[in-house]
Computed example of a mutant assay.
Amino acid sequence: MIQVLRDSNTSKFQVSEFILMGFPGIHEWQHWLSLPLALLYLLALSANILILVIIKQDAALHQPVYHFLGILAVGDMGLATTIMPKIFAILWFNAKAISLPECFAQMYVIHCFVGMESGIFVCMAVDRYVAICQPLQYPSVITNSFVIKATVFMVLRNSLFTIPVPVLAAQRHYCSHSQIENCLCSNLGVTSLSCDDRLVNSIYQLILAWTLMGSDLGMIILSYALILRSVLRLNSAEAASKALSTCTSHLILILFFYTAVIVISITHSKIKTVPLFPVLLNVLHNVIPPALNPMVYALKNKELRQGLHKVLKLCIKRN
């Protein structure tokens, strides 16, 4: 794949770089969006770093469920950082140009992190299913070894299945158009500029979405359906209410994550003139979940709140 990206400067490309125009239809005042986007990005970084610090500092949190939260935090920061620096360069310094290898590399990393995020959602849903529906088996099933194996599998799965995305994009013939009405190098957005047929790119994008994201979403829905059935059988109204509250907040973020992916894919596939909303949704999809996940998944957890208090007390003592 690296060689293909390096060869993207060869003579078959009449354009030497792409121009990321930013948000379509509002180019004159799009720089005003940098403030809320910067706040969201800073929130995503600070909240996820705080989660990692809490988990590292508190020995009581060195358990599989919190390891998944830590992996999710790393993935969240990677997902947001993949696109936000370039977006700020566009909005603040009008640095819209991006080389073809850099564009294809960004395309690859975005797909990897989105797939990793989806995979971690599955792992966390399975963790909650075992904890609530099979509590006696939880210590023997959800172990540190399980976390390592699941993480390695997700990394390899997404890394390998994503390779054809930038490779196929680099095979297209970009003969004249170089302006992308977007803030980032999305697969379908970039290949829409090609002068030859991009059907194979669209087909693989669809296969990738259904194979990875579709199967992940199916596993998540099944897990939470079984959790709901188990919760409704609980004799304790308080325990049922607590479990439903946690599952509901998780599902809201999960539904936003997958709904955004579906809307973005359909829009790029069916609409040639890209409107503002899908582009803005594409950007927010990469920064809102990283900003909100720590609060929804972590800060609602009693043990993590206690860990936060310990970290704050430690900081106060040192100062």
Rank of each mutant, 00 (worst) to 15 (best):
A73E: 13
L276G: 04
V114G: 08
M154W: 07
R305T: 07
A169F: 01
S34C: 08
Q137F: 11
K310R: 13
P139D: 09
I26F: 02
L37M: 13
K313E: 00
N158Y: 04
A240K: 10
T81E: 01
I26S: 00
A80Q: 08
S118R: 13
S99D: 03
K86R: 13
V311N: 03
I54A: 00
W92P: 02
F23H: 03
L217D: 00
T82S: 10
H111F: 09
I220K: 11
T259Y: 03
L100S: 07
V165S: 10
A131M: 07
A209V: 04
G214H: 07
P135E: 01
V296T: 03
I90L: 10
W32M: 15
V283L: 06
K313Y: 01
Q171H: 12
N187R: 10
V279T: 01
D196Y: 10
K86I: 02
V4C: 11
K96D: 04
I148C: 08
I163S: 06
T151C: 05
V167E: 08
L52I: 05
T143L: 04
K86Q: 08
A95W: 04
Q134W: 13
L222E: 08
F68G: 14
L234M: 13
E181P: 03
L52H: 04
N94D: 15
H31T: 14
A89L: 06
